[in-house]
């Protein structure tokens, strides 16, 4: 099995054109003749960038879940809602299928993304030969699911606007929502900066290690 990089070929990440890279040490790069994007065999500093973004999202994850995301004031009494208390509220007053969906999107997905990226980073760094197909699928899933975590930000948005319009009460976005939005954005960029081809780079060159 030959990889494109061994033949000094690279696929443009933007348009998919297979092209010959200029010969040279390190990571040669060129402008794609078809779409003009910067072409390199592997995303530049993929591991360092992804590590930095994953660490940042871990740090943001705690305040995102511990601090209130909104404050609801009805008849003068303010009540703070965190991500979890919002799910519990939905479970008690709304419908459990919706509560399950929100729990999945807001709690499970961000955690899953962070853990999946950590697993990918660590296995790539250890040059592991463990289940490359499954790890590549895990990466695709991480890319696919990430956006759904935005749902709680939109709930705060719509509640605040509706309640404001109806002069029902007051709903104000709180610091937790800012941290939560930052987690979503940072993990989306982290997934984008990881290069799944790194999973495959060491295969066939090293003797497989059993871990």
């Amino acid at each position: 099995m030959t990889m494109a990089i061994e033949r000094h070929l690279a696929t443009c990440h933007a348009c998919g054109l297979l092209q010959r890279l200029p010969a040279g040490p390190g990571h040669p790069r060129a402008a794609c003749p078809r779409c003009g994007a910067d072409v390199h065999a592997r995303k530049t500093n993929s591991l360092q960038r992804t590590w930095a973004l994953v660490v940042a999202s871990v740090l943001l994850f705690l305040p995102a879940n511990l601090l209130p995301i909104m404050e609801v004031t009805t008849l003068g009494t303010p009540q703070a809602d965190t991500i979890m208390s919002g799910v519990v509220h939905l479970l008690e007053h709304g419908s459990w299928p919706l509560a399950l969906v929100v729990f999945f999107a807001s709690v499970v997905v961000p955690l899953f993304k962070i853990l999946a990226l950590l697993l990918l980073l660590i296995t790539v760094q250890r040059q592991s030969a463990w289940r490359p197909v499954e790890r590549t699928r895990l990466y695709r899933l991480t890319e696919l699911l990430g956006r759904w975590s935005m749902v709680d930000i939109f709930v705060v948005t719509v509640l605040a606007a509706l309640v404001q319009a109806g002069a029902l009460a007051e709903v104000r976005a709180q610091a937790g929502a800012v941290f939560f939005g930052a987690v979503v954005v940072v993990t989306m960029i982290a997934a984008e900066s990881f290069d799944p081809r790194l999973i495959w780079d060491r295969l066939g060159k090293e003797t497989p290690r059993h871990e």
Partner: peptide, 9 residues
Amino acid sequence: IACHDCDLL
């Protein structure tokens, strides 16, 4: 073609 996910030619 080179695979965009695993670089196999």
